[in-house]
């Protein structure tokens, strides 16, 4: 047996078993990987203009809180996710408006405006942000995010442009 170039019966069985086993493994294993990661491959990113409040209700220099929910289809269920922020009016012009996202830039808790401290405070790790969203204290790596695009409608409503993550 040894020394000859012919495949022994046993080796033939071993090799065939290996190949067939490998094939079965690949045919089932590769799809299984896609099956697992499928939700991560889905495109999200629906866009919308969302009304956050009347422009006339927003006072100059006082953060105006707003919140909204978006319903997303996740798998076999519709899930409502909440979003929110603060609109800070700086002058009479509707363009002179800063719209902050209240999602903390540290680890995504929701910050709240505390007038007495003159800051947004995050309940999770005590971060403090100024009225304009700059980090005053705590672990966040950067200022609060800003909804860059907003507009005043004919009905006097402020709308922000929202894109699903």
């Amino acid at each position: 047996m040894s020394g000859s170039h012919e495949l022994s019966r046993r080796d033939f069985i071993k090799v065939t078993t290996g190949i067939v086993g490998g094939l079965i493994g690949a045919v089932v294993g590769l799809p299984a990987i896609f099956y697992l990661i499928d939700p991560a491959l889905q495109e999200g990113g629906k866009e919308a203009w969302i009304p956050i409040g009347k422009f006339e209700d927003m006072q100059v220099g006082v953060p105006y809180p707003f919140s909204f929910t978006r319903v997303q289809v996740n798998g076999w269920e519709r899930t409502a996710s909440s979003f929110g922020g603060y609109a800070i009016r700086k002058s009479d012009s509707p363009d002179d408006l800063l719209v902050l996202n209240s999602r903390c830039t540290h680890l995504a808790c929701t910050v709240n405006w505390h007038a007495e401290s003159d800051a947004y405070i995050c309940p999770c790790h005590d971060a403090k942000f100024s009225m304009e969203g700059e980090v005053l204290d705590g672990p966040p790596p950067r200022a609060l995010d800003i909804y860059e695009e907003h507009r005043l409608t004919d009905d006097g409503l402020i709308e922000i442009f929202f894109k699903e993550g």
Binding site: Y35, W76, E77
Partner: peptide, 24 residues
Amino acid sequence: TPSPDHAYDSIQYIMEGVAFGWLI
């Protein structure tokens, strides 16, 4: 999902929504 509210829909989702769900 083993709940009367979702069992049927979750299987429907496996069959139509997830890549290779029909195969598994």
